[in-house]
Design a protein around this nucleic acid. Structure first.
Lengths: 222, 222
DNA sequence: TCTGGTCAGAAAATCGATATTATTTACCCA
DNA sequence: TGGGTAAATAATATCGATTTTCTGACCAGA
């Protein structure tokens, strides 16, 4: 019998997480062909788990499956970015309102803890910080009793992260006081001030979005 | 060179469509274990395409993957039904508003044609009618330039169909004049009367939802 | 030179078999 | 007799090999 809780995950799961990470941080470029053989060598496993992982990533909209020509990472575009941003604003507002309506002490505790952990993490450790940042934002929504909505928000969040990495991580938190924005959102949520929390959250996203868009156009002009 | 458009689909595609259909119409019951071996025999193919099709269905929320214990069809519940209905109302309203804002002649033509085809189809041919019914509703939204939103609506539509089949198809269109509801929605859309179209569409869904919920509770009491 | 078709090489899709892992059943000991 | 352990069984996850399909280069004819 297996007593240790640290079950080693299946090959499929490992492949899924590894490839997903590579796409999000940009190690695999947008539109890049994903050859099974190459991934097999990198991840050191058979073709089946790779295929299965790629199939899972198709549903996350991070990978596209081409009829009988294999897989490639999905493309990025300004219009796609705008679409993601707009959908996120709508869906997260919906989720946040429901979450605050159902908020209890346990939820509040989780929120405060995740906020604290995020603030404590040095920004230098980019991937770790992104993880905690995501955890904080998802905890805001977690009180909402709609698993499907949460799944959508999660997906959209990941798609958005990808654009942040593409824009260059360093520039991300320079111009504004992101720490204060997060604290304000959390305080409004803890106060159960739903309208304010929604407004702050959406401003947070829209500001970041405008910032990234500006950066894209600079990049495109170079 | 392949001149005929009727490319025979890949095994994975065939498996995906076949299993999806079986789940939607209820041939595979909610929560039922999906054994690879059994599906292999039914569909007459190897295990790999089956696994891949099941993985695709996981993203459609029609199948659940259990850590290392295979697959099963996802469960149904009143709360899940309510969640789907609520999300559909929100997302389809969003999509419909954007669709009408972008509406052009080609879109209008497609809408009218799909409505006509649906009305012409005898209700006896249940699966064919459902197909046309879905096509009509998706055409309403198709003018919206947000592929991700459309994908979500599509998914939610399928999840809802499943509940319709579970409730028993025959009862579905008995009490109300569904034909008129559809015509009214289409006319409002063609008139670019956005608010009216949204109200009619959402009433349409909520009425059907209330009807199905009533039916579930009757069934549960028996 | 350009068009169209054919052929070789590469890649993907699929299959059948093997190794792992969960679940059930039978058994032993308290 | 009941709880827990261990073997047996069933099913999954994974691999390596085969079949099918696509892609790009090459050559012939116009």
């Amino acid at each position: 019998m297996q007593m240790d809780a640290s079950q080693e995950p299946s090959s499929t799961q490992r492949a899924y997480l590894a490839i997903r990470r590579m796409i999000l941080v940009g190690e695999l470029a947008p539109g890049e062909k994903l050859k099974i053989e190459k991934l097999r060598q990198i991840l050191d496993m058979g073709g089946s788990p790779i295929r299965e992982a790629l199939t899972l990533l198709v549903s996350d909209l991070l990978v596209e499956r081409l009829d009988q020509r294999g897989f490639r990472t999905s493309d990025v575009s300004p219009s796609n970015f705008a679409e993601i941003l707009n959908l996120r604003c709508h869906l997260e507002e919906m989720a946040l309102r429901e979450s605050l309506a159902n908020a209890d002490h346990a939820w509040e505790d989780r929120l405060v803890i995740s906020h604290h952990r995020m603030m404590r993490e040095p920004r230098a450790n980019v991937e770790r910080f992104e993880e905690l940042h995501k955890a904080f934002h998802m905890n805001l929504l977690n009180g909402c009793h709609s698993p499907v909505l949460l799944k959508f928000c999660n997906q959209l969040y990941d798609l958005n992260i990808r654009y942040r990495y593409l824009a260059g991580q360093a520039l991300n938190y320079s111009a504004r006081d992101i720490g204060k924005e997060h604290s304000d959102i959390m305080n409004a949520a803890v106060d159960r001030n739903t309208d304010l929390a929604c407004r702050l959250l959406l401003d947070h996203y829209r500001n970041t979005g405008a910032f990234l868009e500006k950066h894209f156009s600079v990049e495109a002009a170079e």
